[in-house]
Amino acid sequence: MNATGSRSDQPNGTVLSADELSLLRAVQDRLVPGDGQMPPAHATGAAIAVDTYLAERTDLRTPILGALRAITIATAVHDPAHAGFAHLDGASQDAILHEVEASEPVWFDCLLVQTYTGYYTDPSVQAEIGVPSPLQPAGYASMMQATFDERRLDRVRATARPWREA
């Protein structure tokens, strides 16, 4: 990923199949929907980010692939027409996610953690919430240049608890 643009236009991932990736995008849109200026997850690189994490961290594979599988199974139960999670209405999607959250809390939590991580490390999201992307070299330089007003300490100087001589 480069430092300036959103990752949403990047090619498909290496661990997740195209079907898994599109399921993940649909799931993430329920976890982090758009709201005002804040983009929905699918408009960011959150899904590709999770795929990258899966490529780098084998410890994430069981929980995240497990969560996606559990969502697929729960969808099949709720959706005899087999339209797939992405085609259900929002209320049905949320019901499925709540169900998986309750039945597979550890896997679901892992999926949520990595979704939030992918979402809030996307430059487009950082720009919306006012965080430099990346943090360096700019930082928040001006705050370090304003000088401290020592008069603020007048009361403390006058009333401080003494240290014990020893």
Binding site: L31, D94, L97, D109, L112, V113, Y116
Partner: peptide, 17 residues
């Protein structure tokens, strides 16, 4: 930002949805 969303551990995550 991420730390805020994660809220220091399970049970403290900010709500999804």
């Amino acid at each position: 930002p991420v730390e805020t969303a994660l809220g220091r551990g399970p049970g403290r995550r900010l709500p999804w949805g």
